[in-house]
């Protein structure tokens, strides 16, 4: 019943698209950040001075989810 309402209503389809855009990009950023953060922690364990650089590299994949968010907002 709910599925039919969503499919027949254009607003429902938009919401679904927005959810996919944010959801998938969220997963992708998380996956990329996991690997980079692991590497950054490894390097920082040996050299604490790499904290700043490490932090910057860890947050770079965050742009992926921001793009997803922007697309989702444009859709809604």
């Amino acid at each position: 019943m709910v599925t039919e309402t969503v499919m027949s209503n254009p607003d429902g389809m938009k919401a679904l698209g927005a959810a996919i855009a944010v959801g998938l990009t969220g997963f992708s950023s998380a996956y990329a950040e996991r690997e980079i953060a692991t590497a950054a922690i490894g390097a920082m364990a040996e050299n604490e001075g790499l904290f700043g650089k490490g932090l910057i590299f860890v947050v770079i994949p965050e742009t992926i989810v921001i793009f997803g968010l922007v697309v989702a907002l444009m859709m809604l």
Partner: peptide, 16 residues
């Protein structure tokens, strides 16, 4: 296998 952790750490060790 934790290459992502081990290799940067080993590279940092090598730099010393």
């Amino acid at each position: 296998t934790n290459y992502a952790y081990t290799i940067p750490r080993v590279r940092a060790m090598k730099s010393k």
